[in-house]
């Protein structure tokens, strides 16, 4: 299973950094669904203590980019990108880590994973999180147990993060099909790869923030009060104390 072929169907996410409001709902709903899903449980250690840690498949960072008026605050959800060249898969010594031929989803078989953590070292994006309690590596499954699930209503057959996003900043679809809604969105908005220099060829794409509105004209400074004389001068001096 360690060798893989790039499938024609390439399911993935398109994340719109322009509209993401940084509410963490995607991360929370991901945790909620996956705590009972394909890779369940997502163990938390010391959950009510001072050093709570746990397995999450989705983390929302906030960055500042640029300086001054040209600068932007950008909320940045980060999860597995289901790469076309997933070295997390090729470094796996047991074949527990694999890329599905039918849709390109990268998964871990928890029954054959030895918990060596090498795949997490091979992932530049920090997408894999080790479950210390279970002794196996875990990662985003692209909600493989939702998207093909015929027991839930059809509109809900999308990853949990996508279904819950209140800003509609997350889109799910087949990025291998140039005519799919997500592919058209990527083409239209200039969607890009993270760390393209490493050559992992991620399937997930990020849409850049739209250019900001032109900066408003600079407000004139407060009228100077210095040098006022008479009663107003006295009021100014009293209030300035």
């Amino acid at each position: 299973m360690t060798s893989y072929t790039t499938p024609t169907k390439r399911l993935g996410l398109v994340i719109d950094l322009d509209t993401c409001v940084g509410c963490h709902a995607c991360a929370v709903n991901c945790k909620e669904w996956n705590a009972g899903g394909h890779s369940a449980p997502l163990t938390d250690l010391d959950p009510y203590g001072p050093n709570a840690t746990g397995v999450w498949f989705n983390r929302v960072h906030s960055f500042e980019a640029g300086e001054g008026r040209a600068g932007r605050t950008v909320n940045f959800p980060r999860s597995c990108l289901h790469c076309d060249e997933p070295e997390c898969v090729t470094v796996c010594p047991t074949g527990a880590s694999y890329k599905r031929a039918e849709d390109g989803i990268v998964l871990v078989n928890p029954d054959t994973c030895i918990g060596c953590k090498l795949c997490s070292w091979a992932c530049p994006y920090g997408a894999r999180e080790y479950d210390e309690d279970e002794g196996v590596m875990k990662k985003c499954t692209l909600c493989v147990d939702r998207i093909y699930n015929e027991t839930i209503p059809e509109p809900d057959r999308v990853p949990a993060c996508v279904s819950t996003c209140p800003a509609h900043a997350r889109h799910f679809g087949d990025l291998g099909d140039p005519d799919s809604a997500v592919s058209r969105l990527v083409a239209e908005r200039g969607g890009y790869d993270l760390m393209p220099e490493l050559g992992y060829r991620p399937v997930n794409k990020y849409l850049p923030p739209r250019p900001g509105k032109p900066a408003p004209p600079v407000q004139p400074a407060e009228p100077a009060t210095e040098g006022l004389s008479g009663f107003l001068g006295w009021v100014d001096r009293m209030l300035s104390r």
Binding site: H61, S62, F63, A65, G66, E197, P208
Partner: peptide, 15 residues
């Protein structure tokens, strides 16, 4: 390059 936000300017972690 990690965030792709270099097109805006220098990137630093806020939160």
């Amino acid at each position: 390059t990690a965030t792709g936000l270099g097109r805006i300017g220098k990137v630093r972690l806020l939160d």
